[in-house]
Amino acid sequence: MSIPALLEWIESTDLSTAIREGALPYPIIGGIHLLGIALFGGMVLMTDLRLLGWAMGRRAVRDIVQQFRAWKRAGFVVVVASGLLLAWAEPLKLYRSPAFWVKMALLALVGVHALVFRVRVYGDTARLDVAETVEGKLAASISLLLWAGLVVSGRLIAYDS
């Protein structure tokens, strides 16, 4: 089965049609996606600002990273679940949208970022509280750039027609 044929099948499912053609489901799921971004992005932003030493400097990096982690994960689950539903509603449109592919590429880079920095930065925050490290600041800077790019490219999907 070719990819366009698979995507056409997805669009023919009841769930896809209901989200796409109903008056309320799409904006409601889109709103939940936005709120998830607010939660997840907010936690990422605060973690990165702390790693850079630009915010909450009187609190240990360890406390910030560990205490925001649960909320960060909850936000991530909300963003991914609502994003999958939105994608299920119009996969063909996304397949043909350059902005969508930019967004997916950035998302893959977020995965690479996690693989590279997870152990040495986010998993070893006690070390960061002894002394700020270049690695920590690098991880935070790249993370901020990636998330800004994700939001912008996501927003631009609506303008690819």
């Binding site: 008056a23 904006p27 889109g30 709103g31 936005l34 709120l35």
Partner: peptide
């Protein structure tokens, strides 16, 4: 946020 998202719809 919800009101903002609905503007387009």
């Amino acid at each position: 946020v919800a009101g903002g998202r609905m503007i387009a719809f």
